[in-house]
Write a protein that binds this DNA or RNA. Sequence first.
DNA 1: CACAAAATGAAAATGATTTTCATTTTCAAA
DNA 2: TTTGAAAATGAAAATCATTTTCATTTTGTG
Lengths: 124, 124
Amino acid sequence: MKTMNKSDLKLIAVLERTGGFASAQELHQILRREGDGIGLTTVYRALQSLVDDKIVDLLRREDGEAIYRLCGDGHHHHLMCKSCGDTVEIEGGAIEKWANTMAEEFGFREVGHTAEIFGICSKC
Amino acid sequence: MKTMNKSDLKLIAVLERTGGFASAQELHQILRREGDGIGLTTVYRALQSLVDDKIVDLLRREDGEAIYRLCGDGHHHHLMCKSCGDTVEIEGGAIEKWANTMAEEFGFREVGHTAEIFGICSKC
DNA sequence: CACAAAATGAAAATGATTTTCATTTTCAAA
DNA sequence: TTTGAAAATGAAAATCATTTTCATTTTGTG
């Protein structure tokens, strides 16, 4: 780990606090809301460098927007209602195993994965 | 399967011929190169409707660009190389079970899911 | 203090994708 | 065959996330 400036630390702090995934735009809004005048450009730059340093994971939402989360966060998956948008965090131990097994079988390394479930919740 | 117009068929033809994944822009260029004056808008629309009809799969390149490929039959998942983009179709029996179990546990119905694995393949 | 390197952010640029909207094509009913 | 409505089409404008540019500010160090 090399350079680590103020902005990097801010982003890490927010990611720690919020847990899970967030897009650059969302992270920027959160910081703004908290009174931090940080610029969007800086947020992108900080996230980029954190990804380069493997401190943060970069995934993609279904629409292609980049989302970030702290590496090594015991990560979880989501169950989201297509109707009301309500989301439940769920464990994915089975998925981790599946991903690793499959990746190994095909000789892949530096493996990551995404897995989300969606449906209609009981309230809707 | 419902509507299926001329453009849809053209796109399917190109996807069959080329095999593997291609972005909307690439598919458009290929058609143009072959003398077809189809517009980019139409390419996007055709791809969208093919995805809706589950005739083509939509994934994302690392930079977030959408890439499309003809669906094999049956539901499957993908193992994609972050470096060269090579993709392997894999079975996800474990995932189906996991998704259904979780959904049931939280009272969700009409459940679907996504699960993709990515890493660096042995060639890269 | 002084100064070079690093950091910052506003604004412009980029590039994929979507939307708008006017025009053309398709096609079944008359 | 003619006709009218619905579907399809594409050029151009609009969106939107992300990147780049560039002038300014901050920081660390000699």
